[in-house]
Write a protein that binds this DNA or RNA. Sequence first.
DNA 1: CACAAGCAAGAGCAGTGCTCTCTGTTGTGA
DNA 2: TCACAACAGAGAGCACTGCTCTTGCTTGTG
Lengths: 231, 231
Amino acid sequence: MYGMKATNIRARVRAEMTEEIKRIARRHLATDGANLSLRAVARDLGVVSSAIYRYFASRDELLTALILDAYNSLGQAVEDREGAVARDDLTGRWMAVCDAVRDWALQRPHEYALIYGSPVPGYQAPQDTVAAATRAVTVLGTVIQDAAVARRVRHDPLETLPDKVAQDVRRAGSVIAPDVPDAVTARALSAWVTLFGLVSFELFGQLNRVVEHRDEFFAHQMRAQARFVGI
Amino acid sequence: MYGMKATNIRARVRAEMTEEIKRIARRHLATDGANLSLRAVARDLGVVSSAIYRYFASRDELLTALILDAYNSLGQAVEDREGAVARDDLTGRWMAVCDAVRDWALQRPHEYALIYGSPVPGYQAPQDTVAAATRAVTVLGTVIQDAAVARRVRHDPLETLPDKVAQDVRRAGSVIAPDVPDAVTARALSAWVTLFGLVSFELFGQLNRVVEHRDEFFAHQMRAQARFVGI
DNA sequence: CACAAGCAAGAGCAGTGCTCTCTGTTGTGA
DNA sequence: TCACAACAGAGAGCACTGCTCTTGCTTGTG
Protein backbone atom coordinates (compact mmCIF):
# COMPACT_ATOMS: atom_id res chain seq x y z
CA MET A 1 0.00 0.00 0.00
CA TYR A 2 2.62 2.47 1.10
CA GLY A 3 4.65 3.52 -1.92
CA MET A 4 2.01 2.17 -4.25
CA LYS A 5 0.35 4.91 -6.29
CA ALA A 6 -3.40 5.04 -6.07
CA THR A 7 -3.53 4.76 -9.84
CA ASN A 8 -0.99 2.14 -10.77
CA ILE A 9 -2.30 2.00 -14.30
CA ARG A 10 0.33 -0.37 -15.70
CA ALA A 11 -0.33 -3.00 -13.06
CA ARG A 12 -4.10 -2.65 -13.33
CA VAL A 13 -4.19 -2.96 -17.10
CA ARG A 14 -1.87 -5.91 -16.88
CA ALA A 15 -4.14 -7.66 -14.39
CA GLU A 16 -7.17 -7.00 -16.56
CA MET A 17 -5.40 -8.36 -19.60
CA THR A 18 -4.34 -11.45 -17.68
CA GLU A 19 -7.90 -12.00 -16.55
CA GLU A 20 -9.19 -11.52 -20.09
CA ILE A 21 -6.79 -14.13 -21.44
CA LYS A 22 -7.90 -16.61 -18.81
CA ARG A 23 -11.55 -15.88 -19.58
CA ILE A 24 -11.07 -16.60 -23.26
CA ALA A 25 -8.95 -19.65 -22.47
CA ARG A 26 -11.70 -21.01 -20.25
CA ARG A 27 -14.18 -20.51 -23.09
CA HIS A 28 -11.94 -22.45 -25.43
CA LEU A 29 -11.53 -25.14 -22.81
CA ALA A 30 -15.29 -25.51 -22.63
CA THR A 31 -15.64 -26.06 -26.37
CA ASP A 32 -12.42 -27.69 -27.53
CA GLY A 33 -11.34 -29.60 -24.48
CA ALA A 34 -7.94 -29.80 -22.91
CA ASN A 35 -5.83 -29.22 -26.02
CA LEU A 36 -5.89 -25.50 -25.50
CA SER A 37 -4.38 -23.48 -28.35
CA LEU A 38 -2.51 -20.33 -27.40
CA ARG A 39 -2.78 -19.10 -30.95
CA ALA A 40 -6.54 -19.52 -30.97
CA VAL A 41 -6.81 -17.61 -27.71
CA ALA A 42 -4.63 -14.87 -29.20
CA ARG A 43 -6.84 -14.71 -32.29
CA ASP A 44 -9.96 -14.34 -30.17
CA LEU A 45 -8.22 -11.63 -28.25
CA GLY A 46 -7.42 -9.86 -31.51
CA VAL A 47 -3.72 -10.07 -30.86
CA VAL A 48 -0.74 -11.89 -32.31
CA SER A 49 0.26 -15.11 -30.57
CA SER A 50 3.60 -13.92 -29.30
CA ALA A 51 1.85 -11.16 -27.36
CA ILE A 52 0.38 -13.74 -25.00
CA TYR A 53 3.89 -14.49 -23.80
CA ARG A 54 4.00 -11.08 -22.15
CA TYR A 55 1.49 -12.45 -19.67
CA PHE A 56 2.18 -16.16 -19.46
CA ALA A 57 5.64 -17.60 -19.96
CA SER A 58 4.23 -20.74 -21.56
CA ARG A 59 1.09 -22.68 -22.27
CA ASP A 60 1.74 -24.69 -19.11
CA GLU A 61 1.80 -21.55 -17.03
CA LEU A 62 -1.55 -20.50 -18.43
CA LEU A 63 -2.90 -23.97 -17.64
CA THR A 64 -1.54 -23.70 -14.12
CA ALA A 65 -3.40 -20.43 -13.66
CA LEU A 66 -6.59 -22.04 -14.92
CA ILE A 67 -6.09 -25.00 -12.58
CA LEU A 68 -5.60 -22.69 -9.63
CA ASP A 69 -8.73 -20.76 -10.53
CA ALA A 70 -10.66 -24.00 -10.92
CA TYR A 71 -9.69 -25.24 -7.47
CA ASN A 72 -10.70 -21.93 -5.96
CA SER A 73 -13.94 -21.82 -7.90
CA LEU A 74 -14.84 -25.30 -6.70
CA GLY A 75 -13.83 -24.45 -3.15
CA GLN A 76 -15.94 -21.32 -3.23
CA ALA A 77 -18.95 -23.17 -4.60
CA VAL A 78 -18.70 -25.82 -1.89
CA GLU A 79 -18.23 -23.25 0.87
CA ASP A 80 -21.19 -21.19 -0.31
CA ARG A 81 -23.56 -24.11 -0.64
CA GLU A 82 -22.60 -25.69 2.65
CA GLY A 83 -22.68 -22.36 4.41
CA ALA A 84 -26.32 -21.88 3.48
CA VAL A 85 -27.44 -24.93 5.46
CA ALA A 86 -28.41 -24.74 9.14
CA ARG A 87 -25.40 -25.65 11.28
CA ASP A 88 -27.17 -28.43 13.15
CA ASP A 89 -28.45 -30.11 9.99
CA LEU A 90 -25.44 -32.35 9.62
CA THR A 91 -26.85 -34.58 6.93
CA GLY A 92 -28.00 -31.52 5.02
CA ARG A 93 -24.52 -30.06 5.22
CA TRP A 94 -22.97 -33.33 4.07
CA MET A 95 -25.29 -33.55 1.09
CA ALA A 96 -24.74 -29.89 0.30
CA VAL A 97 -21.02 -30.54 -0.06
CA CYS A 98 -21.61 -33.54 -2.32
CA ASP A 99 -24.17 -31.77 -4.46
CA ALA A 100 -21.99 -28.70 -4.76
CA VAL A 101 -19.08 -30.74 -6.06
CA ARG A 102 -21.21 -32.59 -8.59
CA ASP A 103 -23.11 -29.55 -9.83
CA TRP A 104 -19.92 -27.58 -10.20
CA ALA A 105 -18.38 -30.45 -12.18
CA LEU A 106 -21.41 -30.84 -14.44
CA GLN A 107 -21.40 -27.15 -15.20
CA ARG A 108 -17.68 -27.01 -15.99
CA PRO A 109 -16.74 -30.50 -17.13
CA HIS A 110 -13.50 -29.44 -18.76
CA GLU A 111 -12.33 -27.48 -15.77
CA TYR A 112 -13.14 -30.50 -13.64
CA ALA A 113 -11.17 -32.72 -16.00
CA LEU A 114 -8.30 -30.29 -15.71
CA ILE A 115 -7.98 -30.77 -11.97
CA TYR A 116 -9.34 -34.27 -11.35
CA GLY A 117 -8.68 -35.97 -14.68
CA SER A 118 -5.44 -37.33 -16.00
CA PRO A 119 -2.70 -34.79 -15.43
CA VAL A 120 -1.45 -32.89 -18.46
CA PRO A 121 1.59 -34.77 -19.80
CA GLY A 122 4.92 -33.44 -18.61
CA TYR A 123 3.13 -31.00 -16.38
CA GLN A 124 3.92 -30.84 -12.67
CA ALA A 125 1.48 -29.04 -10.38
CA PRO A 126 3.28 -26.30 -8.44
CA GLN A 127 2.95 -25.87 -4.71
CA ASP A 128 0.48 -22.99 -5.11
CA THR A 129 -2.31 -25.30 -6.12
CA VAL A 130 -2.11 -27.37 -2.94
CA ALA A 131 -3.68 -24.74 -0.71
CA ALA A 132 -6.49 -24.07 -3.16
CA ALA A 133 -7.06 -27.79 -3.61
CA THR A 134 -7.78 -28.30 0.08
CA ARG A 135 -10.57 -25.74 0.33
CA ALA A 136 -13.31 -28.16 -0.67
CA VAL A 137 -12.20 -31.09 1.46
CA THR A 138 -11.80 -28.77 4.43
CA VAL A 139 -15.51 -28.05 4.34
CA LEU A 140 -16.35 -31.73 4.57
CA GLY A 141 -13.83 -32.08 7.37
CA THR A 142 -15.59 -29.36 9.30
CA VAL A 143 -18.90 -31.16 8.95
CA ILE A 144 -17.63 -34.34 10.59
CA GLN A 145 -15.71 -32.30 13.15
CA ASP A 146 -18.92 -30.53 14.15
CA ALA A 147 -20.71 -33.87 14.20
CA ALA A 148 -18.07 -35.37 16.47
CA VAL A 149 -18.12 -32.42 18.86
CA ALA A 150 -21.92 -32.65 19.04
CA ARG A 151 -21.55 -36.37 19.71
CA ARG A 152 -23.71 -37.06 16.71
CA VAL A 153 -21.44 -39.41 14.85
CA ARG A 154 -22.13 -43.10 15.35
CA HIS A 155 -19.12 -45.37 15.41
CA ASP A 156 -17.81 -48.57 16.91
CA PRO A 157 -15.20 -47.51 19.49
CA LEU A 158 -13.53 -50.90 19.11
CA GLU A 159 -12.82 -50.41 15.42
CA THR A 160 -9.09 -50.01 14.93
CA LEU A 161 -6.86 -49.10 12.01
CA PRO A 162 -3.54 -50.63 10.96
CA ASP A 163 -0.70 -48.57 12.42
CA LYS A 164 0.51 -46.98 9.20
CA VAL A 165 -3.00 -46.16 8.11
CA ALA A 166 -3.73 -44.61 11.50
CA GLN A 167 -0.63 -42.46 11.09
CA ASP A 168 -1.69 -41.03 7.75
CA VAL A 169 -5.28 -40.61 8.82
CA ARG A 170 -4.35 -38.86 12.05
CA ARG A 171 -2.09 -36.39 10.29
CA ALA A 172 -4.76 -35.71 7.69
CA GLY A 173 -7.41 -35.04 10.32
CA SER A 174 -5.31 -33.30 12.96
CA VAL A 175 -5.87 -29.78 11.71
CA ILE A 176 -9.47 -29.65 10.51
CA ALA A 177 -11.05 -32.50 12.44
CA PRO A 178 -9.06 -33.12 15.62
CA ASP A 179 -12.00 -34.44 17.65
CA VAL A 180 -13.03 -37.05 15.12
CA PRO A 181 -12.02 -40.63 15.92
CA ASP A 182 -9.41 -41.95 13.49
CA ALA A 183 -11.65 -44.72 12.25
CA VAL A 184 -14.30 -42.15 11.33
CA THR A 185 -11.77 -39.93 9.58
CA ALA A 186 -10.66 -42.94 7.57
CA ARG A 187 -14.24 -43.53 6.50
CA ALA A 188 -14.68 -39.87 5.65
CA LEU A 189 -11.62 -40.01 3.40
CA SER A 190 -13.11 -43.04 1.74
CA ALA A 191 -16.37 -41.19 1.23
CA TRP A 192 -14.47 -38.27 -0.26
CA VAL A 193 -12.84 -40.65 -2.72
CA THR A 194 -16.22 -42.16 -3.56
CA LEU A 195 -17.68 -38.72 -4.18
CA PHE A 196 -15.04 -37.82 -6.72
CA GLY A 197 -14.95 -41.32 -8.12
CA LEU A 198 -18.64 -41.12 -8.86
CA VAL A 199 -18.46 -37.65 -10.36
CA SER A 200 -15.53 -38.73 -12.54
CA PHE A 201 -17.34 -41.88 -13.66
CA GLU A 202 -20.37 -39.83 -14.60
CA LEU A 203 -18.40 -37.15 -16.41
CA PHE A 204 -15.98 -39.46 -18.16
CA GLY A 205 -18.69 -41.75 -19.52
CA GLN A 206 -18.15 -44.76 -17.28
CA LEU A 207 -21.79 -44.72 -16.20
CA ASN A 208 -23.14 -44.78 -19.75
CA ARG A 209 -25.62 -47.59 -20.34
CA VAL A 210 -25.39 -48.54 -16.68
CA VAL A 211 -26.89 -45.76 -14.61
CA GLU A 212 -29.62 -43.72 -16.26
CA HIS A 213 -31.04 -41.86 -13.28
CA ARG A 214 -27.92 -39.94 -12.44
CA ASP A 215 -29.38 -37.50 -9.91
CA GLU A 216 -31.14 -40.16 -7.88
CA PHE A 217 -28.22 -42.58 -8.03
CA PHE A 218 -25.79 -39.94 -6.85
CA ALA A 219 -28.07 -38.75 -4.05
CA HIS A 220 -28.62 -42.29 -2.85
CA GLN A 221 -24.96 -43.22 -2.86
CA MET A 222 -23.91 -40.08 -1.06
CA ARG A 223 -26.60 -40.55 1.57
CA ALA A 224 -25.28 -44.09 1.99
CA GLN A 225 -21.78 -42.68 2.43
CA ALA A 226 -23.02 -40.33 5.13
CA ARG A 227 -24.45 -43.31 7.02
CA PHE A 228 -21.23 -45.26 6.37
CA VAL A 229 -19.25 -42.48 7.99
CA GLY A 230 -21.71 -42.37 10.86
CA ILE A 231 -23.60 -39.16 10.31
CA MET B 1 -11.58 -70.57 -42.35
CA TYR B 2 -13.06 -71.92 -45.58
CA GLY B 3 -11.71 -69.93 -48.50
CA MET B 4 -8.88 -68.59 -46.35
CA LYS B 5 -5.49 -69.80 -47.51
CA ALA B 6 -3.30 -71.37 -44.85
CA THR B 7 -0.60 -68.86 -45.65
CA ASN B 8 -2.37 -65.57 -46.14
CA ILE B 9 0.87 -63.65 -46.08
CA ARG B 10 -0.56 -60.24 -46.84
CA ALA B 11 -3.02 -60.42 -43.96
CA ARG B 12 -0.46 -61.83 -41.56
CA VAL B 13 2.17 -59.22 -42.31
CA ARG B 14 -0.49 -56.55 -42.00
CA ALA B 15 -1.52 -57.83 -38.58
CA GLU B 16 2.09 -57.94 -37.43
CA MET B 17 2.67 -54.40 -38.64
CA THR B 18 -0.46 -53.21 -36.86
CA GLU B 19 0.69 -54.86 -33.66
CA GLU B 20 4.16 -53.34 -34.01
CA ILE B 21 2.71 -49.85 -34.41
CA LYS B 22 0.61 -50.31 -31.29
CA ARG B 23 3.62 -51.62 -29.37
CA ILE B 24 5.69 -48.56 -30.25
CA ALA B 25 2.75 -46.27 -29.57
CA ARG B 26 2.33 -47.81 -26.12
CA ARG B 27 6.02 -47.19 -25.46
CA HIS B 28 5.62 -43.57 -26.43
CA LEU B 29 2.54 -43.31 -24.27
CA ALA B 30 4.56 -44.55 -21.30
CA THR B 31 7.21 -41.89 -21.70
CA ASP B 32 5.53 -38.88 -23.27
CA GLY B 33 2.03 -39.20 -21.94
CA ALA B 34 -1.23 -38.85 -23.77
CA ASN B 35 -0.13 -36.46 -26.52
CA LEU B 36 0.89 -39.28 -28.77
CA SER B 37 2.73 -38.24 -31.92
CA LEU B 38 2.09 -40.29 -35.03
CA ARG B 39 5.22 -38.91 -36.62
CA ALA B 40 7.36 -39.98 -33.68
CA VAL B 41 5.90 -43.47 -33.85
CA ALA B 42 6.63 -43.54 -37.58
CA ARG B 43 10.21 -42.43 -36.96
CA ASP B 44 10.74 -45.20 -34.39
CA LEU B 45 9.31 -47.63 -36.87
CA GLY B 46 11.77 -46.42 -39.50
CA VAL B 47 9.00 -45.35 -41.78
CA VAL B 48 7.57 -42.12 -43.13
CA SER B 49 4.57 -40.72 -41.26
CA SER B 50 2.08 -41.14 -44.07
CA ALA B 51 2.76 -44.88 -44.08
CA ILE B 52 1.03 -45.21 -40.71
CA TYR B 53 -2.21 -44.21 -42.38
CA ARG B 54 -2.23 -47.52 -44.23
CA TYR B 55 -2.95 -49.14 -40.88
CA PHE B 56 -4.86 -46.54 -38.93
CA ALA B 57 -7.11 -43.99 -40.57
CA SER B 58 -6.26 -41.37 -37.98
CA ARG B 59 -4.58 -40.74 -34.68
CA ASP B 60 -7.94 -41.21 -32.98
CA GLU B 61 -8.30 -44.66 -34.50
CA LEU B 62 -4.91 -45.65 -33.17
CA LEU B 63 -5.91 -44.35 -29.76
CA THR B 64 -9.12 -46.33 -29.94
CA ALA B 65 -7.14 -49.48 -30.61
CA LEU B 66 -4.90 -48.74 -27.65
CA ILE B 67 -7.94 -48.11 -25.45
CA LEU B 68 -9.49 -51.40 -26.50
CA ASP B 69 -6.25 -53.24 -25.77
CA ALA B 70 -5.97 -51.52 -22.40
CA TYR B 71 -9.47 -52.58 -21.35
CA ASN B 72 -8.72 -56.14 -22.37
CA SER B 73 -5.36 -56.13 -20.68
CA LEU B 74 -6.92 -54.91 -17.44
CA GLY B 75 -9.74 -57.41 -17.75
CA GLN B 76 -7.28 -60.22 -18.31
CA ALA B 77 -5.16 -59.19 -15.34
CA VAL B 78 -8.19 -59.10 -13.06
CA GLU B 79 -9.50 -62.44 -14.32
CA ASP B 80 -6.12 -64.12 -13.86
CA ARG B 81 -5.52 -62.82 -10.38
CA GLU B 82 -9.02 -63.56 -9.15
CA GLY B 83 -8.99 -66.96 -10.79
CA ALA B 84 -5.96 -67.97 -8.75
CA VAL B 85 -7.80 -67.63 -5.44
CA ALA B 86 -9.76 -70.49 -3.88
CA ARG B 87 -13.44 -70.20 -4.86
CA ASP B 88 -14.69 -70.21 -1.30
CA ASP B 89 -12.28 -67.50 -0.12
CA LEU B 90 -14.65 -64.67 -0.92
CA THR B 91 -12.70 -61.94 0.82
CA GLY B 92 -9.55 -63.17 -0.88
CA ARG B 93 -11.26 -63.00 -4.24
CA TRP B 94 -12.58 -59.51 -3.53
CA MET B 95 -9.14 -58.27 -2.54
CA ALA B 96 -7.58 -59.99 -5.54
CA VAL B 97 -9.80 -57.98 -7.84
CA CYS B 98 -8.94 -54.71 -6.08
CA ASP B 99 -5.22 -55.43 -5.99
CA ALA B 100 -5.21 -56.51 -9.63
CA VAL B 101 -6.79 -53.24 -10.72
CA ARG B 102 -4.39 -51.13 -8.69
CA ASP B 103 -1.25 -53.04 -9.64
CA TRP B 104 -2.18 -52.96 -13.29
CA ALA B 105 -2.77 -49.22 -13.06
CA LEU B 106 0.53 -48.56 -11.25
CA GLN B 107 2.40 -50.52 -13.89
CA ARG B 108 0.74 -48.75 -16.82
CA PRO B 109 -0.26 -45.33 -15.52
CA HIS B 110 -0.67 -43.81 -18.96
CA GLU B 111 -2.80 -46.63 -20.26
CA TYR B 112 -4.91 -46.30 -17.13
CA ALA B 113 -5.23 -42.57 -17.73
CA LEU B 114 -6.28 -43.33 -21.28
CA ILE B 115 -9.30 -45.33 -20.17
CA TYR B 116 -10.19 -43.89 -16.77
CA GLY B 117 -8.83 -40.36 -17.03
CA SER B 118 -10.35 -37.40 -18.78
CA PRO B 119 -11.51 -38.48 -22.22
CA VAL B 120 -9.43 -37.34 -25.17
CA PRO B 121 -11.02 -34.11 -26.44
CA GLY B 122 -13.38 -34.54 -29.35
CA TYR B 123 -13.01 -38.27 -29.07
CA GLN B 124 -16.06 -40.49 -28.71
CA ALA B 125 -15.57 -44.08 -27.53
CA PRO B 126 -17.03 -46.47 -30.08
CA GLN B 127 -19.33 -49.34 -29.13
CA ASP B 128 -16.49 -51.89 -29.38
CA THR B 129 -14.92 -50.72 -26.17
CA VAL B 130 -18.05 -51.34 -24.10
CA ALA B 131 -17.72 -55.12 -24.11
CA ALA B 132 -14.04 -55.00 -23.21
CA ALA B 133 -14.73 -52.43 -20.52
CA THR B 134 -17.09 -54.75 -18.66
CA ARG B 135 -14.65 -57.64 -18.29
CA ALA B 136 -13.16 -56.37 -15.04
CA VAL B 137 -16.41 -55.40 -13.34
CA THR B 138 -17.91 -58.73 -14.34
CA VAL B 139 -15.35 -60.51 -12.19
CA LEU B 140 -16.33 -58.49 -9.14
CA GLY B 141 -19.98 -59.17 -9.94
CA THR B 142 -19.29 -62.89 -9.95
CA VAL B 143 -17.69 -62.66 -6.51
CA ILE B 144 -20.78 -61.14 -4.90
CA GLN B 145 -23.02 -63.46 -6.90
CA ASP B 146 -21.15 -66.47 -5.50
CA ALA B 147 -21.32 -64.92 -2.06
CA ALA B 148 -25.07 -64.43 -2.35
CA VAL B 149 -25.67 -67.97 -3.58
CA ALA B 150 -23.60 -69.32 -0.67
CA ARG B 151 -25.65 -67.13 1.67
CA ARG B 152 -22.47 -65.51 2.84
CA VAL B 153 -23.37 -61.91 2.22
CA ARG B 154 -24.66 -60.02 5.27
CA HIS B 155 -27.33 -57.44 4.61
CA ASP B 156 -30.34 -55.82 6.18
CA PRO B 157 -33.37 -57.23 4.31
CA LEU B 158 -35.31 -54.12 5.24
CA GLU B 159 -32.94 -51.81 3.43
CA THR B 160 -34.71 -50.38 0.40
CA LEU B 161 -33.65 -48.28 -2.56
CA PRO B 162 -35.46 -45.37 -4.21
CA ASP B 163 -37.46 -46.66 -7.18
CA LYS B 164 -35.34 -45.19 -9.93
CA VAL B 165 -32.15 -46.32 -8.27
CA ALA B 166 -33.54 -49.81 -7.85
CA GLN B 167 -34.36 -49.86 -11.56
CA ASP B 168 -30.83 -49.02 -12.65
CA VAL B 169 -29.26 -51.30 -10.08
CA ARG B 170 -31.47 -54.24 -11.02
CA ARG B 171 -30.70 -53.91 -14.69
CA ALA B 172 -26.99 -53.65 -13.95
CA GLY B 173 -27.01 -56.76 -11.79
CA SER B 174 -29.52 -58.86 -13.70
CA VAL B 175 -27.02 -60.62 -15.94
CA ILE B 176 -23.95 -61.25 -13.78
CA ALA B 177 -25.41 -61.18 -10.28
CA PRO B 178 -29.10 -62.10 -10.44
CA ASP B 179 -29.24 -63.62 -6.95
CA VAL B 180 -27.76 -60.61 -5.20
CA PRO B 181 -30.24 -58.36 -3.36
CA ASP B 182 -30.57 -54.96 -5.02
CA ALA B 183 -29.34 -53.12 -1.96
CA VAL B 184 -26.17 -55.19 -1.99
CA THR B 185 -25.65 -54.63 -5.70
CA ALA B 186 -25.98 -50.90 -5.08
CA ARG B 187 -23.27 -51.11 -2.45
CA ALA B 188 -21.06 -53.16 -4.74
CA LEU B 189 -21.37 -50.51 -7.42
CA SER B 190 -20.40 -47.92 -4.85
CA ALA B 191 -17.39 -50.04 -3.88
CA TRP B 192 -16.43 -50.32 -7.53
CA VAL B 193 -16.52 -46.54 -7.80
CA THR B 194 -14.45 -46.21 -4.65
CA LEU B 195 -11.87 -48.63 -6.00
CA PHE B 196 -11.34 -46.62 -9.16
CA GLY B 197 -11.67 -43.35 -7.32
CA LEU B 198 -8.85 -44.34 -5.02
CA VAL B 199 -6.62 -45.61 -7.82
CA SER B 200 -7.24 -42.41 -9.79
CA PHE B 201 -6.50 -40.25 -6.76
CA GLU B 202 -3.24 -42.10 -6.19
CA LEU B 203 -2.19 -41.98 -9.82
CA PHE B 204 -3.25 -38.43 -10.50
CA GLY B 205 -1.48 -37.02 -7.45
CA GLN B 206 -4.50 -36.27 -5.27
CA LEU B 207 -3.04 -38.32 -2.41
CA ASN B 208 0.27 -36.45 -2.37
CA ARG B 209 1.14 -35.09 1.05
CA VAL B 210 -1.94 -36.76 2.48
CA VAL B 211 -1.49 -40.50 2.31
CA GLU B 212 2.07 -41.77 2.48
CA HIS B 213 1.51 -45.49 3.08
CA ARG B 214 -0.28 -46.16 -0.16
CA ASP B 215 -0.30 -49.97 -0.03
CA GLU B 216 -1.66 -50.16 3.49
CA PHE B 217 -4.19 -47.39 2.95
CA PHE B 218 -5.52 -49.03 -0.17
CA ALA B 219 -5.71 -52.48 1.42
CA HIS B 220 -7.51 -51.09 4.45
CA GLN B 221 -10.06 -49.13 2.45
CA MET B 222 -10.81 -52.03 0.15
CA ARG B 223 -11.24 -54.40 3.07
CA ALA B 224 -13.61 -51.83 4.53
CA GLN B 225 -15.51 -51.78 1.25
CA ALA B 226 -15.84 -55.56 1.35
CA ARG B 227 -17.40 -55.30 4.79
CA PHE B 228 -19.58 -52.42 3.62
CA VAL B 229 -20.93 -54.61 0.83
CA GLY B 230 -21.45 -57.45 3.29
CA ILE B 231 -18.73 -59.93 2.41
C1' DC C 1 3.31 -65.44 -64.92
C1' DA C 2 0.94 -60.99 -65.77
C1' DC C 3 -1.14 -57.77 -63.08
C1' DA C 4 -3.93 -55.82 -59.63
C1' DA C 5 -3.59 -54.85 -55.04
C1' DG C 6 -1.05 -53.11 -51.50
C1' DC C 7 2.62 -50.47 -49.90
C1' DA C 8 5.88 -46.66 -48.62
C1' DA C 9 7.83 -42.34 -50.01
C1' DG C 10 7.74 -37.49 -50.64
C1' DA C 11 5.86 -33.11 -51.14
C1' DG C 12 2.70 -30.08 -49.30
C1' DC C 13 -1.07 -27.71 -46.38
C1' DA C 14 -2.63 -25.74 -42.30
C1' DG C 15 -1.99 -25.75 -37.84
C1' DT C 16 0.88 -25.74 -33.20
C1' DG C 17 4.31 -23.71 -29.16
C1' DC C 18 7.85 -20.80 -28.69
C1' DT C 19 11.89 -17.37 -29.63
C1' DC C 20 13.90 -13.28 -31.20
C1' DT C 21 14.10 -8.81 -33.05
C1' DC C 22 12.13 -4.52 -33.90
C1' DT C 23 9.12 -0.56 -33.33
C1' DG C 24 5.87 2.36 -31.24
C1' DT C 25 3.72 3.89 -26.98
C1' DT C 26 3.13 5.45 -22.34
C1' DG C 27 3.45 5.71 -17.39
C1' DT C 28 6.64 7.48 -14.31
C1' DG C 29 10.66 9.13 -11.27
C1' DA C 30 13.48 12.85 -11.02
C1' DT D 1 7.13 18.92 -16.74
C1' DC D 2 9.59 15.89 -19.56
C1' DA D 3 13.15 12.52 -21.10
C1' DC D 4 13.47 7.86 -21.01
C1' DA D 5 13.21 3.30 -19.43
C1' DA D 6 9.98 -0.07 -19.35
C1' DC D 7 6.71 -2.26 -21.67
C1' DA D 8 3.35 -4.06 -25.23
C1' DG D 9 2.53 -5.88 -29.50
C1' DA D 10 3.89 -7.13 -34.34
C1' DG D 11 6.17 -10.07 -37.47
C1' DA D 12 9.24 -13.40 -39.12
C1' DG D 13 10.96 -17.77 -38.38
C1' DC D 14 12.05 -22.60 -36.41
C1' DA D 15 10.80 -27.13 -35.50
C1' DC D 16 7.10 -29.66 -34.80
C1' DT D 17 2.18 -31.73 -35.48
C1' DG D 18 -1.98 -34.46 -38.16
C1' DC D 19 -3.38 -35.39 -42.46
C1' DT D 20 -3.89 -35.65 -47.83
C1' DC D 21 -2.57 -36.70 -52.34
C1' DT D 22 0.23 -38.30 -55.97
C1' DT D 23 3.82 -41.24 -57.56
C1' DG D 24 6.24 -45.07 -58.27
C1' DC D 25 7.68 -49.81 -56.71
C1' DT D 26 7.12 -54.46 -54.81
C1' DT D 27 4.92 -58.66 -54.34
C1' DG D 28 1.40 -62.03 -53.38
C1' DT D 29 -2.02 -64.19 -55.98
C1' DG D 30 -5.86 -65.78 -59.28
